[in-house]
Amino acid sequence: MVNLSVNLCGLTLDNPVIPASGCFGYGKEFAEYYDINILGSFSFKGTTRQQRFGNPTPRIAEAPAGMLNAVGLQNPGVEHVISHELPEMKRYFHKPVIANVSGFSVDEYVETCAMLDAEEQVGIIEVNISCPNVHGGGMAFGTSPDSAAAVTKAVKAAVKKPVFIKLSPNVTDIVSIARACEEAGADGLSLINTLLGMRVDLKTHKPILANGMGGLSGPAVLPVALRMVYQVYKAVKIPLMGMGGVSCARDVIEMMLCGAAAVQVGAANLVHPCACKEIIEQLPVEMEKLGIRSLQEIIGGAHA
């Protein structure tokens, strides 16, 4: 009998598999395909203080072994999330959930995080300082150690629950930003967000995405994500949620060997609605094959 459970800042997860924010909505659409209570947890759609329509369409483009998106944080705003989405979610998901938060100023991050921190369904706050698809916010905070630390410090002072900072890969030195977040009091780090990319329509000679650029995700980014998780694991002591192109149980194991304490699955959910279910079912099979008894024990195993 293999052991899939992992510990994340005092929360025991049945398994390390967590659908990533923006790829799972509030879980409702997936609950039509399988009982999502088998998940370790899930990170719900990025929430901002005010409601946002997001970017004009097209918001989606195909990429080799992946996809680009420029949704632009469409969400109904934190008040609606608390009054409507969370109560509805309670009916089909019974574990602590991860609240993903974005903002356009430190005050906005703090206010939104504090409101979600007060919700008992929320187990972890994941602060997104790395969305590539909005202007004048989001990624701006994630591209310098000072601003990343400022958001982290302010949010930590305002909430009780564990705070994970979601990092951008679109930086010259992710390690320095990870360290700055740890020093500012982050309980953990999530990485990576999408890689900034673009595609051009050969018929119109113009970018396919209405926003011009968008975030690349899918299997194409897996090696980049593994490398960054590996580098950051070496540099910090706080736990990591690793993500980026994870599509199968073997990818989960690889991500944990690089240092992830839990693993988020993003784009794969959009192509295969049962992707996470299949990963969870396949994990024990792969562990048996590889002689792994406990996932908790392999975290960081790729390091000397």
């Binding site: 923006g22 659409e29 997001g54 369409t57 989606i60 959910n269």
Partner: peptide
């Protein structure tokens, strides 16, 4: 019609504005 990723309402890739607020073309 819109460009879509998931097609079942999860990704918000195909949202349009309507008189009743944002709606997903796919769902």
């Amino acid at each position: 019609e819109e460009r879509m990723a998931c097609g079942f309402g999860a990704c918000m890739g195909c949202t349009i504005q309507t008189k009743n607020g944002p709606k997903r073309v796919c769902k």
